[in-house]
Design a binder for these strands. Structure first.
Lengths: 215, 215
DNA sequence: GGCATCAGTGGACGTTCGTCCATTGAAGGG
DNA sequence: CCCTTCAATGGACGAACGTCCACTGATGCC
């Protein structure tokens, strides 16, 4: 280290950004532990070690902070998904496998993230801003694997291939959704290997020539 | 009607029971429409057309009323399930089919019931009394179809039949769970026939000689 | 080094919540 | 028919909530 080059990033604006992020982190922590309903302004600022006024200062109100926290949480999911998709090949089977593996990976399916996801989705009933994130995720996953299944079906001699592609999409997403719920309710009993195997049992059952059970 | 035999059921006690039930109904109505968090004492008594003090009088507090409402809601589910099981035969395939058909039937999977179910399960995090109903339902369904799958697997020459029975149980319940979530989020787009077909695609894929696709 | 700026503070405020109880009035027994 | 009983009432109450603002003090520019 030839020069202790402190580029002076610790100006007031930078510190403010850090506090803003601390509020989001504290919110996510509280939502994971207590749920949205029990996440009060007092609870958030205590966890962040900041004063009550900070929420109004940085976000204009508690509601906007919740939306920002939900947004960040959703982005984390897509970051991991994109990483899995980049690592996968272009074959439709690989895309489907990437989605399944990403969805069951510990980096997105962990106690904190899963509790946050369901807490926000439960609260989405009255908050359109939050519901949007839930719908966006579902729609994107749906599109992604439907295209893949469609490609598989079109290249094969499958009767009624359109129906099969739709059923495969619908079934895979429903199965993953059920696995997440299972993980939410019994995180200690959950086994990712088994969950993956069951999803591939479904896939190899519906498209026997294109998917096979993992060893 | 020879004698207009009014057995005097409209005494004070009977009226009290009616009001007690009115409070439960108002609670379920509010939970379905607004969620648990937004279901306040004021909201409940307004819907029931009764006075504020009634909740404390009949239930000793709001919390006990929520528990009573959740309990009644869970009992409704089992009533329908039992009806389907009674109508089914004793063959394990019929038992599995009865559970699937009951779970997707309009009498339990309808907008109100599904919203109530997820609202209570979301609120169950802090309320052990309510979580109990959720766990009881899951455990009972699990037992029911695991026995059925086990019977099917034991009577066949399936390699690793224990694992298959467990995967079939786990997968079927996860798939149904995902279908409920799907219905919760998009009740207008949901198609029971398709949902049923997808579940049976899974079943016929995992146990090809014992289940087949419905026409 | 002194002054303007503004991120940060924390208490005041009005609202809404669930609980509880003094009071009411119709039912039901004598 | 009157008197007891008790389901039912609705307002009072303290606690907890989110919002907001007058104030503070460290920072950054001249």
């Amino acid at each position: 280290m030839p020069k202790d080059r402190v580029p002076r990033p610790l100006k007031r604006k930078v510190l403010a950004k850090k506090n803003r992020q601390a509020l989001i982190n504290a919110t996510l922590s509280s939502v994971a532990e207590l749920g949205v309903a029990q996440t009060s302004v007092t609870e958030i600022v205590n966890r962040a070690g900041l004063s009550r006024g900070m929420i109004h200062l940085h976000f204009g109100g508690k509601e906007n902070l919740l939306v920002a926290a939900a947004k960040q949480s959703a982005e984390r999911y897509f970051d991991v998904l994109d990483k899995f998709l980049e690592a996968a090949g272009a074959k439709p089977q690989e895309i489907v496998a990437a989605v399944v593996n990403a969805d069951l990976d510990e980096s997105v399916m962990n106690p904190g993230s899963v509790k946050i996801w369901y807490a926000f989705r439960g609260a989405a009933r009255d908050r359109a801003m939050i519901a949007q994130f839930s719908d966006t995720r579902d729609a994107r996953l749906n599109n992604l694997i439907y295209r893949a299944f469609r490609e598989i079906c079109d290249q094969s001699q499958i009767p009624d291939s359109s129906t099969v592609a739709r059923d495969a999409t619908h079934g895979t997403l429903a199965l993953l959704e059920g696995m997440w719920t299972d993980y939410l309710l019994h995180p200690d009993l959950f086994d990712r290997q088994i969950a993956r195997r069951i999803v591939f049992r479904f896939l190899s059952g519906i498209l026997p020539d294109h998917f096979e059970l993992p060893r």
